[in-house]
Computed example of a mutant assay.
Amino acid sequence: MTTETGQEKLARLLEVLDRQDILDCLTRFSRGMDRFDRELFLSAFHDDAVIAAGPFVGGPGELYDWASALHDQGQVATHHNLLNVTYDIDGETAHTETYYLFVGRNRDETNWIAGGRYLDRLDKRAGEWRISLRTNAVEWSGLVPTLDIPFTDIPDIHLNGTPGRGKGDPSYRRPLTNLRAPQIP
């Protein structure tokens, strides 16, 4: 049985911290897009990043403007769900493959679902991981049956906040509190 040295343990710990920082970066992109939070979205990218997504090829600010207008025109809600992530970290550069599941509630009351993978190169600059290059491999897409959104008939369902795009969404409220009375159905 081989025992890890202190140096080897430290190297593994530093890699775990890098992986977590990279995952936090990837999550900022998704949350920023879904909440229409431009500042959060842009914090996932270096200013000189290049993104190739569908017909779009350009920088982070241009991507946000194009994608948020596209989503605002087409959907009332979106979820950019991140799934499996693989990491290849080499010093201050990392390559990731992130499976995603996109779901959108369209303005015409249909639901769009798509899956694919984000292929990213991230660079650690000034101690912070951000995306430098992103490509998007869309692998499938379709419509799923529309059902009524559950629980909308409960009178106090939105006392803790109404889901929405922007900083009015209850996920931004600090401290998070419960304003609904106890009730057990």
Rank of each mutant, 00 (worst) to 15 (best):
Thr177Gln: 15
Ile157Asn: 08
Thr162Ala: 03
Met33Leu: 15
Phe56Leu: 06
Tyr118Ala: 03
Leu14Trp: 02
Arg28Cys: 15
Val144Ser: 01
Glu8Arg: 02
Thr177Lys: 14
Pro150Trp: 08
Gly54Asn: 06
Glu97Gln: 14
Ala49Val: 12
Glu109Met: 01
Ser30Pro: 04
Pro182Val: 01
Arg173Ile: 08
Thr135Asp: 14
Gly59Tyr: 11
Thr152Gly: 03
Gly32Asn: 10
Met33Tyr: 11
Leu143Cys: 01
Asn106Glu: 15
Gly166Arg: 11
Ala11Val: 03
Thr98His: 00
Ser141Ala: 15
Val138Glu: 10
Leu82Met: 11
Asp156Tyr: 02
Ile157Pro: 03
Gln75Asn: 11
Ala69Ile: 01
His80Pro: 07
Asn178Phe: 05
Thr146Gln: 07
Thr3Asn: 06
Asp90Trp: 00
Thr2Val: 13
Trp140Ile: 04
Gly116Cys: 08
Trp66Arg: 10
Leu122Glu: 00
Gly161Thr: 01
Cys25Met: 06
His79Phe: 08
Asp169His: 10
Arg174Lys: 09
Thr96Arg: 05
Thr5Ile: 08
Arg165Glu: 03
Asp88Met: 00
Asp88Gly: 03
Gly161Ala: 01
Gly115Leu: 04
Ile184Phe: 11
Phe36Met: 12
Leu179Phe: 09
Val144Phe: 01
Ala137Ile: 04
Pro175Lys: 09
Asp148Leu: 14
Pro150Val: 09
Glu128Asp: 00
Gly91Pro: 05
Leu159Asn: 12
Thr86Val: 11
Arg35Ile: 00
Arg12Thr: 03
Asp65Leu: 09
Pro60Ala: 14
Arg19Phe: 04
Asp123Cys: 13
Pro185Trp: 05
Ser171Pro: 01
Ser171Gly: 14
Leu26His: 07
Arg28Ser: 15
